[in-house]
């Protein structure tokens, strides 16, 4: 089966998603309303938008953990049906297994994908080293700091190569310094293989520093509001992007967008 080379890694076409919450009095709720966008292979896209606008829902749809109420979600041109094991998903919660040590958590994805043991060990060591977690291999997740847990969660997914990586506020609860350091690490990791990345964040600086394109969402029900091409050269220096004129320009435009939506909630 010779597929023609595809222009897009993923695509959402007029996607609607309604939730029926539990509880008697709860009314169905429209989370996404006609969301359409696509990502080129190797593209780094950030999704920004007010809390509750359906960003995590978009990622869940792509991971096949939930189905669209209407519209199409495709991955390499094929509709996503059932859990999509071809994407890597770094969820909003770190979702490390509390009964596995850090190293065994990093190994988990490789293990589930039946990577031979020796190869597994080698890659685990390499990735742990890459994000500076060496020495904490035998610690359980509750014995790690918040930033360490985040790192472990990220390399757990990056340790096996998937051509699409979904990341939901991976640096959400971290302090400003750790964030920038992890952003830098992430860009380096990304550069190794250049997977397509869909990155959810509330941090506009982060979105600009990392992405090729930024998609803003309206408040609930979430729709695509605007798309921005970042057009900053790579490799990026996340510690100094703020100094570039293009950065200010984008930042102001994005902030205007978001402010309006937050005011509307």
């Amino acid at each position: 089966m010779a597929d023609p080379p595809l222009e897009e890694a993923i695509r959402l076409e007029a996607v609607y998603k309604a939730f029926v919450p539990r509880g008697r009095s709860a009314r169905p709720l429209l989370a996404l309303e006609g969301v359409s966008f696509a990502a080129r292979p190797g593209e780094f896209i950030s999704l920004v938008g007010p809390s509750g606008c359906g960003k995590s829902t978009v990622l869940n749809l792509l991971a096949g953990l939930t189905r669209p109420s209407a519209g199409r979600v495709t991955h390499h041109g094929r509709p996503v049906s059932g859990v999509n094991t071809e994407v890597g998903y770094i969820t909003q919660d770190d979702n490390l297994l509390p009964w596995r040590s850090m190293a065994r958590n990093v190994e988990y994805g490789l293990e589930l994908r039946r990577v031979p043991k020796a190869e597994r060990r080698r890659r685990v060591r390499e990735f742990i080293d890459l994000v500076g977690l060496t020495g904490f291999e035998d610690h359980y997740p509750h014995e790690l700091s918040g930033g360490m847990r985040k790192r472990a969660g990220i390399v757990r997914t990056l340790a096996y190569d998937s051509d699409v990586v979904l990341m939901d506020e991976p640096f959400g609860p971290l302090d400003a310094q750790t964030r920038v350091i992890l952003q830098d690490e992430l860009l380096k990791l990304w550069d190794l293989r250049r997977p397509t990345v869909l990155f959810v964040t509330h941090d506009l600086v982060e979105a600009i520093a990392l992405s090729d394109r930024i998609i803003t969402f309206t408040c609930r029900p979430g729709r695509v509001k605007r798309e921005y091409e970042v057009r900053l050269p790579r490799p990026r220096d996340v510690f100094h992007v703020h100094d570039l004129p293009r950065f200010r320009e984008l930042y102001d435009a994005l902030w205007d967008d978001i402010r309006m939506e937050i005011a509307a909630t």
Partner: peptide, 17 residues
């Protein structure tokens, strides 16, 4: 937690895993 099951499935874990 549902999240642990979800990440396991997405990483390629079957029912048994």
């Amino acid at each position: 937690p549902q999240g642990l099951i979800d990440v396991t499935r997405v990483m390629g874990g079957d029912r048994w895993a």
